[in-house]
Design a protein around this nucleic acid. Sequence first.
DNA 1: CATCAGTTTGACCATTTGGTCAACAACACG
DNA 2: CGTGTTGTTGACCAAATGGTCAAACTGATG
Lengths: 204, 204
Amino acid sequence: MNKVRPQTRIQRKNTEAILEAALSVFSRAGFRGATLDQIAREAGLSKPNLLYYFPSKEAIHIELLSGLMDVWLAPLHQMDEHGDPIEEIVAYVLRKLEMSRELPNESRLFANEIVHGAPRILDQIKGDLRALVEEKAAVIQGWIDAGKLAPLEPRHLLFSIWATTQHYADFDVQVRGILRPEANAHFNDAAEFLEQFYRRALRP
Amino acid sequence: MNKVRPQTRIQRKNTEAILEAALSVFSRAGFRGATLDQIAREAGLSKPNLLYYFPSKEAIHIELLSGLMDVWLAPLHQMDEHGDPIEEIVAYVLRKLEMSRELPNESRLFANEIVHGAPRILDQIKGDLRALVEEKAAVIQGWIDAGKLAPLEPRHLLFSIWATTQHYADFDVQVRGILRPEANAHFNDAAEFLEQFYRRALRP
DNA sequence: CATCAGTTTGACCATTTGGTCAACAACACG
DNA sequence: CGTGTTGTTGACCAAATGGTCAAACTGATG
């Protein structure tokens, strides 16, 4: 159904550079705080040239967010109904924490959008995300009913996982201000803490 | 030490109205996204009149944030070394959740500031907040050493409490998009979940 | 009522910023 | 090498926005 849009070498390179620069700037300054000049400069282009590839500032933002949603849902998708319940959930927690370590800008971009009312991704939240949560909540409830997991409301359990793991990316400055860690050493402590924490809370 | 600044009735009323309006606008749109016109309109004043009471947009923001820090730390201050460890922590969790229910705008203002690098409160984070965390972490460690609490790193335990409770204010839109709750009914479910969750994780 | 500090605002300004455009440069390709 | 498509940019524009200021208004007080 889509018209095939032949991408030239230059197009591919520049759109990629723009999106990368925009992610950096948006996650640092927020949508309103980011300027096209900053993004253009960081991408190594002039502003009109940037606007040759994207029709508007908002279009860049939307492109970033919609591309991000899939990445964001992937770790939860991997949770396997037929695995060991506690191991599956702990593994999910650690995957999510790993994303906070590896993709903090993406996490902040997401957080920023939601804190401001998610005007551009509310549909995806109410659609894809909600559906996935319902699916996995049913799996977790099944585990609970089978006596393999402590009886905890599955949806709120998922919220707790998102909150605790994304906290290390979104509130990075606060965490660092309190722990004064060398480099990212505290992520290892966080992983250890979260694993023990969830194992304790989840065992039947 | 402070010079006594005699506040007229009108001054008190207007500065209060400005701060209230600014909280609403800042928490909704972020610092850069908020405009003085919006704040002035919502406070029922003209823009020059607003600037008669505060010297700049940033001054309003700083005033809000510094006033907020005390409110934010209060629930943790209340945690009593001599109480029952698990009950003290659970009570702290519920107080914090109650703040997300009652003061969501304050929570979002705070979250927004930190996500953007906390340029205006980093000193307070590294000072007051850090000191309080160190103090209470020592208390929790004492409880653990006494065998009254599961051995979990105290600082990361505090992070988890902040994350899970503030999530219901900061990510309100996402929570609602997934749960489709009537009014604020889901806060009761969250309270029940968090209480059970922390009781399970914390028992020795 | 007179006075004066305190309060309010319309008009205005400088800057920032998202976006446009015409002209020019680079490139692919027959 | 000629030609049409793709890529690039300096100059420019309109709107938004933080902030100023002189002038006018209001209210408390003697």
